[in-house]
Design a protein around this nucleic acid. Structure first.
Lengths: 165, 165
DNA sequence: AAAAGTGCTTGCGAACTGCAACTGGATGAT
DNA sequence: ATCATCCAGTTGCAGTTCGCAAGCACTTTT
């Protein structure tokens, strides 16, 4: 049961779904952190999300069609999966990351991914979306690169971490 | 007096500034609607923003450095101006608009701009940013096109409106 | 002098947030 | 078979924010 949008503007439509301080954070952890379970999202979150907020956001994201949840019963390990609509929020993430990187203080370790995605070719975003389609939707990729986009991100992340110590 | 960020992540940093249901809407009206005064933002807003919310968001945006406000005294017409950081939220707007257009119901009249920006060349965004730099920061453009980006958006908007009637 | 316009502020009930504890069920080791 | 642990959340509660309507202090226009 979806409530009426405040207007017919496309930006407003996106803001009504993504525009709060937690929804995009949860989605980020699914997309970049590879987390697919409630517990992982709760305990490995950098910003310290509360369990009731996480529960409400996961519910909202499933309702809005950005995530889907398998039909695990109470007590069983439930898995959250990105839908195509969820995968297509990646360009939004990239734009936000690029802005945050340039106009806010960030720590090097957590900002590497944003830097790579902002500086990398536009293709990189497309490649990463294809990877997400593969791991979340089971779509096999046509032109797998020798080194995948997520592997490149991971390498850069580890490189910065090792520098820091 | 800026409070501590929840984490050093670039996406989180952006979300902490832009991540609520009104901030981006106000910014959208300044960027695309050309509104520079409190009254204009209040009365011409499609989503029906309340005056206290508008006041708090303008204050927040000035504090965060996305807008600046001239030193008008009480009762005088104050003018809000985009800063470079504010202008650089345009790619975020475009990404959000593209997503909303594809995954949410929108009305043709209000979605034209999003469509043009999503389908147009990446240069279009850059041109529009240059225009904003000109009108808000007083930076004269180097290569003014015969038909400016905002004029093209406006033309498309009017074309759709005339179709609708 | 009066009316209209300026950017806000205030008061108030309703909704949302964040924290901590708790729940009902499944899973794994003894 | 039993107990501890893990699972995805729920519940209660205090504090904050939201949305609405009205009002405020001041300037500009008529």
């Amino acid at each position: 049961m979806r409530k009426e949008p405040r207007s017919g503007c496309a930006i407003n439509a996106a803001v009504e779904v993504l525009g709060d301080s937690w929804t995009l954070i949860v989605l980020r952890d699914v997309i970049f952190g590879g987390r697919r379970h409630f517990r992982d999202l709760l305990t490995q979150n950098d910003e310290g999300i509360a369990s009731n907020i996480l529960a409400s956001r996961l519910r909202k994201l499933v309702e809005a069609g950005l995530l889907s949840r398998d039909d695990a019963t109470r007590g069983q390990k439930a898995t959250y999966t990105l839908t195509e609509a969820g995968i297509q929020t990646l360009p939004v993430m990239v734009a936000l990351g690029a802005w945050g990187l340039q106009h806010r203080p960030t720590t090097p370790e957590l900002a590497v991914r944003a830097r790579i995605l902002a500086e990398g070719s536009p293709d990189l975003v497309g490649e990463l979306m294809d990877e997400l389609r593969e791991s979340h939707l089971g779509v096999t990729r046509e032109n797998p690169k020798s080194l995948s986009a997520s592997e490149r991100l991971q390498q850069a992340y580890e490189a910065v971490q090792s520098q820091a110590h």
